[in-house]
């Protein structure tokens, strides 16, 4: 049974009294523990799609089911990680990670245990009392990851989380994220506009067409062994194949499989 079923007939925004259709017939499912990457040109509606899955945006036609339940609002079962972080600058690293746990009115001891566990997991134990602005971009994203994981969500929704990082920090986070995914067995939806990143991380890649009226243009499976590195031959080969398919009109390759 898939953990998430997405069937969005259409999603539009009212801009200057004109109905702007952003998403159209977005239809896919995701299995528990799967790492799904979504790629698409900027402005095609990727963030909008994640907002809908998170439950922050409910004004669309169609449905999104989380474990067969219609999503009726935002809750900590599906947590967002943003490109622009969304960490709170008035709180320390540790307080950021504990923010959601405190809202749940958990036991103090338990909160402490959880936050130190995830601080360890993202290698930031030494920085637990730092303020956010004292950290590098890569460290901030690790705090965001720890803050999300601490809430023990079913699904992590990552919205171009590494796109503002330098290549080196991004490489490190690619390997850390794969490790964390292997340990926590979370379901992840990872948005990027970088095909290489998608191939490096995803079990499956969903390609959206450009706006307006973005649809799922193609899906690819990536069966490379893990952990993967972004400059490995396997990744580069798959990227070439995908790009070729995307460039040379596509629809007929829908659902094509790639095996190393």
């Amino acid at each position: 049974m898939p953990i998430l079923k997405v069937d969005i007939k259409s999603k539009s925004f009212l801009v200057d009294r004109v109905n702007l259709v952003v998403l159209e017939n977005i239809n896919f499912q995701i299995e528990k523990g799967e790492f799904l990457c979504v790629i698409g040109p900027s402005g095609c509606g990727k963030t909008t799609l994640l907002n809908i899955i998170a439950g922050l945006d409910l004004s669309y036609e169609g449905y999104v089911l989380h474990q067969e339940q219609l999503i009726k609002g935002s809750d900590a079962h599906r947590l967002l990680i943003f490109q622009e972080m969304g960490l709170f600058p008035w709180l320390t690293v540790k307080e950021n990670i504990e923010f959601g746990l405190k809202l749940k009115r958990m036991d103090k001891k338990e909160i402490e245990n959880i936050s130190s566990k995830y601080l360890e997991m993202v290698n930031l134990a030494k920085f637990k009392n730092s303020f956010i602005h004292e950290l590098s971009g890569g460290m901030k994203q690790r705090v965001a990851l720890a803050r999300a994981l601490a809430m023990n969500p079913d699904i992590l929704l990552m919205d171009e989380p590494f796109s503002s990082l330098d290549a080196q920090a991004r490489d490190i986070l690619h390997s850390e994220l794969q490790k964390i995914w292997a340990v926590t067995k979370k379901t992840i939806i990872f948005i990027t506009h970088n095909v290489r990143e998608a191939v490096c991380l995803g079990d499956r890649i969903l390609v959206l067409s450009s706006a307006p009226g973005a649809r799922v243009k193609a899906t690819f499976s990536v069966n490379l062994p893990r952990p993967r590195q972004i400059e490995s031959d396997g990744v580069i080969e798959n990227v070439k194949l995908i790009k070729k398919v995307l460039d040379s009109e596509i629809e007929k390759y829908y659902g094509m499989q790639f095996n190393k």
Binding site: S74, L79, F88, F99, L103, R147, M151
Partner: peptide, 23 residues
Amino acid sequence: IYIKAGRNMGARGVTLLRKVIIP
């Protein structure tokens, strides 16, 4: 984005105001 993050982690109404918007 702070409001979005706060809501996503379960802050609503007065809690959202006190813990996110005012700070």
